[in-house]
């Protein structure tokens, strides 16, 4: 696809593939266009050229709501909660595409089972949660839909090592249940270590793709994270 902000082009003929029921990690230097890629996939940026297919279906120009209905969910980089609303009400927004408040409530209970801490804090303002709890809330909110494909952008940022581990475990558990996950991570080594597949993005283009192991072992990958360029 080709996409960008206004007149600037960030993604220039970027082509990627996400495997079903697998964890795929996108790595690349800062400013490579990783987050932009997610925004473009999730209908937040106009796509000027190219196509996005989900299970063979064209979803190129769909809006977020339609994508949610098709079983995609997106957890962006940074804080994505509504700090002044309660935890409960934040979570509730995960079910908008269900268009069924009853069903949403049932699923919220399931999320609470997964994250008891959210249940304990249900009536509190989300802004009062710790950084880790907020990330749990975001992930829980995305899981509420029981999506087929989860896009998650740098989930580990700002989390303690223990929480990072917990988050990754959670994602692996999701994958084992058949969810396809596309994740962006700064901590490339650790992320690729648990991933099935890897994608390297560089200046808005696909630089490399393959199994996570294959990318980890590639001789030029270390070079890439020292600020160099990968020749493919």
């Amino acid at each position: 696809m080709v996409a960008g902000y206004g007149a600037t082009t960030i993604l220039n003929s970027t082509t990627i593939e996400v495997h079903e029921a697998a964890l795929t990690t996108v790595i690349g230097p800062n400013g490579a266009g990783k987050s932009t890629l997610f925004k473009a996939i999730f209908g937040m940026l106009p796509i000027r050229e190219g196509k996005i297919l989900l299970e063979g279906q064209d979803i190129t120009h769909l809006k977020p709501l339609a994508l949610l209905e098709k079983g995609m969910a997106y957890v962006p980089q940074g804080r994505n909660i509504f700090p002044q609303l309660s935890v409960e009400h934040n979570l509730e927004f995960g079910g908008i595409s269900l268009k069924n408040l009853q069903e949403t409530r049932v699923r919220m209970e399931k999320v609470y089972e997964q994250f008891p801490i959210l249940k304990a804090r249900a009536k509190k303002q989300a802004g009062t949660l710790s950084g880790g709890e907020q990330k749990m809330l975001e992930i829980g909110r995305a899981m509420l839909l029981e999506p087929k494909l989860l896009l998650i952008d740098e989930p580990s940022i700002g989390l303690s090592p223990i929480l990072v581990q917990q988050t990754f475990d959670l994602l692996l558990a999701l994958r084992d249940r058949g969810v396809s996950i596309l994740m962006i991570e700064q901590n490339a080594k650790k992320a690729l270590g648990i991933s099935d597949y890897g994608i390297v993005l560089q200046q808005g283009r696909l630089a490399m793709a393959g199994t996570a192991q294959g990318i980890l072992n590639h001789p030029e990958i270390g070079h890439l994270f020292l600020g160099g360029v990968v020749k493919v």
Partner: peptide, 23 residues
Amino acid sequence: TFVGRSMEATAQNQDVARILGIN
């Protein structure tokens, strides 16, 4: 109300509101 909260959510963070499918 859910609509009211969706408005609050829109006020607090429009991009996230959009990602969650709020109109």
